[in-house]
Computed example of a mutant assay.
Amino acid sequence: MIIRLSDCPLQPWKNGLGSTREIAVHPACAGIDDFMWRVSIAEVDSAAPFSSFPGIDRQIALLDGNGFTMTLDDDRAHSLTTPFTPFAFAGEAKVAVTLVDGPTRDFNLMVRRARAQGELQCRDTPGSHRLAPDIVLVHCARGTVDTSEGQLHAGDAWLPGGTSITLAVGAVVLVVRITALS
């Protein structure tokens, strides 16, 4: 199933201090308190702190803009300034943000750590790529990507209904892998 970013309504962050677009959630129609995994794209236009998500493992990657510095639990800093490079952190961490220069958009993967493990990967090699069975979502971050259900453009996502994708020259995808825990 192809998901167009324009079809995902803007909604407030859990703490109400920013906005996001939920791209996909599992199980379908799960809420903020009962998802196994969730993918969203956040609009970060101020130095607002991130929402707290106890029990959730998070991964984030810069999509657009010059990025920001995250200060986690008042002592560990990470600069999220290189596009498409995932950074993992605990959802219960206290995260303060300092924008580098203007607003940004970032890709977010959240996984309930008691139920699953998740991984966010960046792929940018042109050509055909086989998808492992644990890949639950492909996000086109730049360029175009062909799938068995149609073409993705920057901002689009795909819940795989096939076994491969083809990246055009210059395309970048973020791939979400999920492994359920027994």
Rank of each mutant, 00 (worst) to 15 (best):
T71I: 11
T71V: 15
A48L: 07
F35Q: 00
H139A: 02
L174H: 08
T147W: 04
W13H: 02
E92V: 11
S6G: 02
T81K: 06
A116Q: 08
D106H: 02
L10S: 12
W13L: 06
R177V: 04
A24Y: 13
E43D: 15
A171C: 08
W37D: 07
A157H: 02
D45N: 15
V176P: 09
K94M: 15
H78G: 00
P160Y: 07
T71R: 12
C122Y: 06
G102H: 01
D64W: 06
S6L: 05
A154R: 00
T85G: 02
W37P: 04
R76K: 14
F50A: 10
V95M: 08
V39T: 13
N66I: 09
V138P: 06
R130D: 08
F35S: 04
V100D: 00
G31E: 04
S19E: 08
D74K: 06
N108F: 12
R105L: 14
S148F: 11
D106T: 09
F89Y: 04
L120T: 00
H139W: 14
V175K: 00
I135T: 11
K94S: 15
I3W: 04
V172A: 10
L109Q: 01
K94D: 15
T71L: 14
S40V: 10
W37C: 12
C140L: 08
S79G: 09
R130G: 06
C29Q: 14
A157D: 05
G91V: 14
V25E: 03
V136T: 07
P86K: 01
C8D: 03
D156T: 04
R142K: 12
V176W: 03
S19G: 02
A116Y: 03
P83H: 06
T82M: 03
E149P: 03
L99F: 03
P103T: 05
